[in-house]
Design a protein around this nucleic acid. Structure first.
Lengths: 154, 154
DNA sequence: ATTTGACAGTTCTATTTTAGAACTATAGCC
DNA sequence: GGCTATAGTTCTAAAATAGAACTGTCAAAT
């Protein structure tokens, strides 16, 4: 497959996968949501090679998910901060965390607990229907072709 | 990094990424949710090489995300069906689809529309707090170390 | 009875990506 | 001048992926 054109496929999943669909990118985003911002900090917490980290950060900046912001003038140094587009990936990351909590746990219990500051409680993320508010399940959803596609895939 | 031990890291995101964190696996799962079940069907709709498709399907079966179910005795033929563990990946896929709809769209509009059979309406998936039901935003969440980890990462 | 086609893979080589380590560059501090 | 911190770049070796061809089973067509 031509990964360089994946982002133009008439499929929103493909387009998302084109941008964040690899191991390192997802792990880098985890660090971003844990407030990591600097090259050295990413590198040492992930043990990613400097070369790949550099590449992935450039790509995330290019797609508008991170902003490269100077924090020192001399020498010039930058940090990488989530844009709104990047912050909007939170449900993707949290959905993966929740699946891992549910299906990949061990006897030691959860690695992290999440507190919702708004209500003060420890929570799990739940995906609901924007219209009726009920939790979503794959079997209750029917897919239609939208305007961005000729015929439905299934 | 040692990808073979990623699934044992004390981090639910790492563990999830270890299983579904690559381009082909995510695309294969999309097809699964669109009711694709057979080797030839995956191969022709994704244009994935047969070798990689074979590998990825084996891996998904090994992790209990797909079940390999015979549908013909002679010749022996199998199809791949989502288990409950696999169906539980729906929020992950839908979160990615929704992000793509929101941030990677073009002038043609959405490729697919989703109808919630329960309420009959076209919807978007929304991630909410299990405790108070409010939509989740990264900045309203505070992370604590859980029992499965010694010290918090951030 | 032999050929053709469908299906579900496996095997092989060439190309691309990633890992791992070393190197570059700027500037502050001792 | 030498040491450290930070943010990269460059190089070679190893691993993963692409692309095409091949295998094996059986049914249906010739």
């Amino acid at each position: 497959m031509k990964w360089d054109t994946l982002e133009e496929e008439p499929c929103s999943l493909s387009r998302t996968v084109a941008v964040v669909g690899d191991r390192w990118t997802l792990l880098i985003l985890r660090e971003c949501f844990l407030r990591v911002r600097r090259f050295e900090a990413f590198q040492s917490s992930l043990q990613i090679t400097r070369h790949l980290l550099s590449e992935r950060l450039k790509k995330l900046v290019r797609f508008g998910i991170l902003r490269r912001v100077p924090y020192s003038e001399a020498p010039k140094r930058y940090e990488y901060i989530l844009t709104q587009k990047g912050l909007d990936l939170y449900p993707v990351i949290m959905a993966m965390v929740h699946w891992g909590d549910t299906h990949m746990g061990d006897e030691r219990g959860r690695p992290l607990l999440h507190e919702h500051k708004t209500c003060g409680k420890l929570f799990d993320p739940v995906m609901v229907c924007s219209e009726c508010g009920e939790p979503l399940h794959a079997k209750q959803v029917h897919v239609h072709a939208g305007p961005g596609r000729q015929e439905a895939v299934g």
